[in-house]
Design a protein around this nucleic acid. Structure first.
Length: 290
DNA sequence: AACCAGGCGCATA
DNA sequence: TATGCGCATGGT
């Protein structure tokens, strides 16, 4: 990894397996948007991220080496050797997924933001999840620029009534957000102790919250607490498991199931390889009743 | 106009 | 333990 500071920017070069646009747009984070110049813009831990590709590296705007070490290096999990992890995947499907979407990493997002975002994600679609999260920040976060807001803290949200949360248009999820904020604030849920807690205990801790089941707990542990052994199973991963791994995940994913999951998830959703069959399935389903 | 969306809580057996 | 249904809202 090579870092160079210049004019209030940091140039990042020589990192294997890092595709930042892909990381920010593969369904693990909900606060980023592509800019007109092909970069990405968002807010992380109160810091504005503006990043774009340049030659073989990336330019991070309005930051310096110190801030980069503190915020962006952990956020993009730059100390983990993903090339090595990917190379260890001794499995045909995983190899295809990695080959087509090389550079996906598991983001180390802020735990509360992750928990809250994935509560909102349930029975929901990504464009609307993003809208709700955006309104959450605009209404209850701190304004840090003309158009940027921080993600609101659990302390703030714990004192916002479910009724006041109706501006989010989050539907039945509003009461879950409120319950989560209150339980984290009171210490009933020890969110910031989940980094090293045994996985089963960590899952149970999160599932004390109303609206947090196995899937949301697993996503929080994976994307929020860097627990790469977590394995969220959603509708897409269910498809993968039944289509490709009826007897369970291959041995080579042991300990990094979450990383394997992210590649498989994105591949199964986005690869052209599956488009035809999925359309066929849909039209077949549509045709049943008519 | 039904049906679906990175699920979950609750009721029922 | 295992199913199945309803749920707020918005997009096709």
């Amino acid at each position: 990894m090579k870092l160079t500071e210049k004019d209030g920017c940091v140039l990042l070069e020589e990192v294997e397996c890092l595709d930042i646009p892909l990381c920010l747009d593969c369904g693990q984070a909900f606060r980023f948007a592509e800019t007109a110049d092909g970069g990405f813009h968002g807010v992380v831990c109160g810091e504005i991220l503006d990043v774009k590709r340049i030659d073989d590296g990336y330019v991070f705007e309005h930051t310096d080496l110190k801030k980069f070490e503190k915020i962006w290096k952990p956020y993009f999990d730059l100390d983990r050797d993903y090339a090595e992890v990917c190379a260890s995947f001794d499995d045909e499907n995983l190899k295809k997924a990695v080959n087509e979407f090389y550079g996906i990493r598991i983001l180390r997002q802020e735990p509360w933001e992750t928990l809250c975002s994935f509560i909102i994600s349930q029975n929901n679609n990504i464009p609307r999840i993003k809208g709700i999260v955006e309104r959450l920040c605009q209404n209850f976060g701190e304004k840090i620029s003309d158009c940027d807001y921080t993600f609101p803290s659990y302390e703030v949200l714990a004192d916002v009534s479910v009724d006041e949360l109706s501006v989010l248009r989050a539907g039945f999820r509003a009461k879950y957000i409120s319950d989560a904020a209150q339980k984290v604030k009171s210490g009933e849920v020890r969110l910031y102790e989940l980094y090293e807690m045994p996985m089963d205990e960590a899952r149970e801790e999160l599932m004390k919250i109303k609206g947090v089941g196995a899937k949301v707990a697993e996503c929080t542990l994976l994307y929020g607490l860097g627990r790469v052994e977590a394995f969220p199973v959603d509708v897409w991963v269910k498809r993968i498991m039944s289509e490709m791994y009826p007897d369970g995940l291959p041995e080579c994913t042991k300990g990094v199931e979450g990383i394997a999951q992210q590649y498989l998830f994105h591949w199964r959703r986005k690869s052209k390889e599956f488009l035809k069959n999925d359309e066929k399935t849909e039209s077949a389903l549509c045709g049943v009743g008519s």
